[in-house]
Design a protein around this nucleic acid. Structure first.
Length: 424
RNA sequence: GGAGGGGUGGCAGAGUGGUCGAAUGCGUCGGUCUUGAAAACCGAAGUGCCGCAAGGUACCGUGGGUUCGAAUCCCACCCCCUCUGCCA
């Protein structure tokens, strides 16, 4: 949520920054300011009346104590009470509307954010490694899975529906090994504290990180929308600190979590989602940082490097891009995407998205800390995938496939999988 | 699921209709003392909102209600604890 004071101070500047994202959210800003004005003037009037009421009520107490008649004054106060109530209702309505609208305004893109309409305008920041070359025609992960019985979409559909998969045998163990490898990496080399949160999430938390109110239809709702299946561990993990007042020495907080993620992904079937690439349920190891505002820029670089190290350790070629204004997620101010090369697929796959939310989420969830002057300030929150599992899996098997259909396992993963090769 | 108890400031914990934004302790910050620290002593300090400011106002789990006036009384809901049932 944006600070209302930003909107008051320079609405046109804010509008134009919001506009760079595309969409129509900026058109709500005028109404927000109308509500704000209405709310504030109503509040002032209401408070004057309340002050009046408090004063007179005290007099009544005095009168009663000394045994005098107070019925006339009581009638007067009753009238004030009625006016307070009616003005209060107007103020509440304006306040509710203002909040409702404000929740729909996305975060402001970072000042240095490249301006562009869509993903074609995202600059590549760096690349690591090279595309592997093959002396045979590499196949895609779906074919490799068929040859080696790694996973089965029909078995996913039988017990659930399309968009779900069942990993089998060594294929299931590979998934589990990757999760273990990632958690161990981040907790031992990157100083993360591991948490294992609930997967069923309440509405307040979904508002806190920005999934609600705008993206309710993308989520799996439970119990009439009172709860949701977690779309990403970002939600439960960041919200562990919702409505907390931290002391400065608590920061930075770095947490990692493995969770499955559940997304409806409505209307996104097709070539770009073949095989494991876009599922309704997928595993992910997430990295979450809660930091002091002046440090969040550095932490985004660090967080991104931590995610990149995963791919380096596994020897997978990737590139890192920065999202332009038009491609930036709703709550994010600055985002790097890490895209791993999948030779069978013949393209790059997004395996990680690392974002700095500034105080946008913290303001929504009232997550603050006491600074050195004793002032309460909103923290900055960041998160990044470290990494998403299915696409990592895809890149791994496609990169290390052999001409006979077997798959070599990179050295760091071997202790987890208990072998250096799958198949043949 | 059943029975009982409870949710108050960063934390713990008093407070059952007006003088309570709220005792006290811990923790925090400033000072005295000390070479420095600790201890001791003195002092400061809740959060949001409205207001240029002075100041005002709201907030005692959440939402309603009673009342001239609610942390305090009533209703509903949420959460936590203890006991108990079922159970991975």
């Amino acid at each position: 949520m944006l600070d209302i004071r930003l909107l008051r101070d320079d609405p046109e500047a804010i509008k134009s920054r919001v506009k760079t994202r595309g969409g129509e959210a900026w058109t709500l800003i005028d109404e927000i300011l109308v509500c704000d004005e209405k709310r504030r003037s109503g509040e002032t009037e209401k408070q004057q009346l309340q002050s009046e009421r408090n004063r007179i009520s005290k007099e009544i107490g005095q009168l009663k104590k000394s045994g005098e008649d107070s019925s006339e004054v009581e009638a007067e106060v009753r009238k004030i009470g009625e006016r307070i109530k009616s003005i209060g209702e107007e103020v509440d309505a304006a306040d509710a509307r203002q909040t409702e609208l404000l929740l729909q305004i996305p975060n402001l893109p970072h000042e240095g954010c490249p301006v562009g309409e869509d993903e074609t305008a995202n600059p590549v920041i760096r690349e690591w490694g090279e595309k592997p070359s093959f002396d045979f025609d590499p196949v895609d992960h779906v074919e490799l899975a068929r040859k080696n019985s790694l996973f089965d979409f029909e078995l996913g559909a039988r017990v659930s529906s399309s968009g779900f998969v069942t990993f089998t045998g060594i294929g299931a163990r590979l998934e589990r090994s990757l999760i273990q490898f990632l958690l161990d990496l981040h907790t031992t080399e990157h100083d993360y504290r591991e948490v294992s949160p609930p997967f069923i999430i309440n509405r307040d938390s979904m508002f806190g990180t920005g999934q609600l109110p705008k993206f309710e239809e993308d989520m799996y709702g439970l119990e009439d929308g009172s709860y949701f299946l977690a779309p990403t561990a970002e939600v439960p993990v960041t919200n562990l600190y919702r409505e907390q007042l931290l002391s400065q020495s608590d920061l930075p907080i770095k947490m990692t979590a493995y969770t499955p993620c559940f997304r409806r992904e409505a209307g996104s079937a097709g070539r770009e989602s073949r095989g494991l690439i876009r599922m309704h349920q997928f595993d992910k190891v997430e990295l979450v940082n809660i930091v002091r505002p002046e440090e969040s820029g550095d932490f985004l670089e660090e967080l991104t490097a931590e995610a990149e190290l995963v791919l380096q350790k596994l020897g997978l070629h990737y590139r890192t891009i920065e999202l332009c204004t038009g491609d930036l997620g709703f709550s994010s101010a600055k985002t790097y995407d890490i895209e791993v090369w999948a030779p069978g697929h013949g393209g790059y796959l997004e395996v990680s998205s690392c974002s700095n939310f500034f105080d946008y989420q913290a303001r929504r969830m009232k997550l603050r800390f006491k600074d050195e002057e004793g002032k309460n300030r909103f923290c900055h929150t960041l998160n990044g995938s470290g990494t998403a599992l299915p696409r990592l899996y895809v890149a791994l098997v496609e990169t290390y496939q052999q001409s006979d259909g077997s798959i070599l396992i990179p050295e760091p993963l071997q202790p987890y999988l208990g072998t250096d090769r799958i198949g043949a």
